[in-house]
Design a protein around this nucleic acid. Structure first.
Lengths: 345, 345
DNA sequence: CTGTTAGCGCATTCAG
DNA sequence: CTGAATGCGCTAACAG
């Protein structure tokens, strides 16, 4: 069986030296036998293997890494693991990375640029082979790229040069969402975002505006609610927004967090969806097809984005970190459900 | 700012030697200055610090680890990151661990005992300081404990001795859920589980049976559906179960995955909840209070469980891996919503 | 094909 | 208070 029984806990680790001694070879031969690199007689190889198994030998990656070889570690930096979006992103990343034999070091920066930089430093210190990051600032990516660390950004782009980027076309997705509302006859369409620092929030706003413009509808500045700056509880703020803009017949929520907020406020008020308000979310979560009415949503290929980003990073790692920076934009698609219909009146 | 500008990418890493040279000291002095251990003149310390900053020096953990000090890494093994339960568990773990300066290496074993053992070996190889694991077999924990690695199990227990365990009282939670149904007057209560290999599934079944027994209701063997052995699509299987046991007035779903399945099947059939069927879930997820009617659920302190397990592991790590094994059982609580009412007829 | 030698970068003796 | 020397475990040259 794996490990045999003779490895007794605790006592100083068994090292290659022990394996070599037991097998009656030198350490280098043992090393070659186990790593499969270089020449080594078949019967010796077997003997070493047996010795390693019986001692429960586990190679020390620190030593291997120190020696200059790969650490086999990839850093992953996300903003909030409890948000299903990031959990799924992480799952996608983990999926391709672990299938390639890499370990994932996961850090949740909770949206803090400072913590992101700390994490970046930790990845550097661990001699990670590369880093995947959903940036919350330029700092972390800058630090990493400066140090020659292969980096691929996911979901958002910091604007730092020298790394790959995989995003979802926020603008097109928002455009599709709002076009859908316009086609149904809506003209007074509100949009709720929780930040406009990143391209995600900004581009969704742009897509919203572009759709209105293309339809010849003037986009009232007051139809935009940015939760990013408000201190008040967010749901309450949504309520004020709805009160202050009574002509609205539809709301576009810029991400799943905002969509939940809007949805809860609508439910709290007991207003009918889609009769009173139509609702569209950017980002599709399981609950959106479970509630009644189902929420029309822009579906993002999140898991695939994670896989793609990981794949790109690995390519970069393999060519030594250099080369052209590729920028991949994945297309979202609109899933029409029952939260959208022609406007009231 | 941190790192200065002079770190040019790529070129061989800057090491302590470089810092020492620039600061005009020996490497040992530089080491002491930066690590804050041992004597070193104040002005020298500042000079070294400045040199390190200007070069963008980042210490090499591999070297440090090799030297015998802590790797600063804790392994975390979960079964399915896309399941909100595990995502939240991971978030809780990450929360306390990162606040203590540890890095988390996350592996998703997708419920495979084999992959779990591989991950365990990887943690050993990385010289992780400890490992948190939601076991899917004895193998991984055994390997780890055998090698003297501090281990804390979460959510499930493998039964391997020598590690701490933090779980939630499945039996009590199930008991509360079924007692609730019984109090409402239900007598024909079905239960759906997706495994009975682990204590989670088994104990929930036990709790279910204990509740019935205490109420003097004979628990029909046919009222139990174990999805674990079925090849057929699970939701379809739930449908067959419902058809074959037409007297059921309530269903207890043993976890969030099963609850979703049952809920979807009920919705597909267009039967009224709670009028036709009452539904209770073990594990409370956000969607359960968003759907209509809200799903009555056994709420588990998942995030707290993650934090607690991480805390316990750290204690063990600090005392060198030995000591008494503590076993912590957290209490769940029932959140009554509208999916449960008195039975039909 | 195999053994000997030499570090990787760091923290720690031990002298000065 | 500081510097020179040593070795953590492993692998890559180089001889044999």
């Amino acid at each position: 069986m794996a490990g045999g029984g003779s490895a007794r806990g605790k006592r100083s680790r068994v090292t290659l030296r022990d394996v070599a001694e037991l097998a009656g070879t030198s350490r280098s031969t043992a090393s070659r036998a186990l790593s499969g690199t270089g020449y080594v007689a078949e019967h010796i190889k077997e003997r070493v293997q047996a010795a390693a198994d019986s001692l429960g030998y586990v190679p020390d990656v620190s030593a291997r890494t120190l020696k200059g070889r790969s650490s086999g570690v990839i850093g992953l930096l996300v903003s909030d693991l409890r948000n299903q979006f990031y959990a799924e992103l992480a799952a996608g990343v983990e999926h391709t990375l672990s299938s390639e034999g890499y370990q994932v070091v996961l850090v949740d920066d909770h949206g803090s640029a400072e913590r992101a930089v700390d994490a970046a430093r930790a990845f550097l210190a661990m001699r990670a082979d590369g880093v995947l990051i959903a940036p919350v600032g330029r700092g972390a990516t800058e630090l990493l790229v400066e140090h020659g660390m292969p980096v691929t950004e996911v979901d958002r782009r910091s604007g730092v040069r020298g790394c790959d980027v995989v995003t979802i076309d926020s603008r097109a997705g928002a455009r599709a969402a709002v076009d859908h509302l316009l086609a149904l006859g809506h003209r007074a369409i509100g949009v709720v975002v929780d930040e406009t620092f990143w391209d995600t929030g900004r581009d969704r706003l742009k897509g919203y505006r572009a759709a209105l413009r293309a339809a010849g509808v003037t986009a009232g500045r007051r139809h935009v609610l940015d939760l990013g700056h408000t201190a008040r509880p967010a749901q309450e703020e949504v309520g004020r927004f709805l009160d202050s803009e009574p002509t609205l017949t539809a709301v576009f929520a810029a991400n799943n967090v905002v969509a939940e907020l809007v949805w809860l406020e609508l439910k709290r008020r007991g207003v009918s969806v889609p009769d009173q308000y139509s609702l569209v979310s950017f980002d599709d979560l399981p609950w959106m097809r479970m509630v009644d009415p189902g929420v029309t949503a822009v579906r993002q290929p999140v898991f695939a984005m994670g896989e793609r980003a990981a794949g790109l990073l690995l390519e970069r790692v393999r060519r030594g970190g250099g080369g052209r920076s590729v920028s991949d934009v994945l297309e979202p698609e609109l899933a029409v459900r029952d939260s959208t219909s022609a406007p009231r009146g």
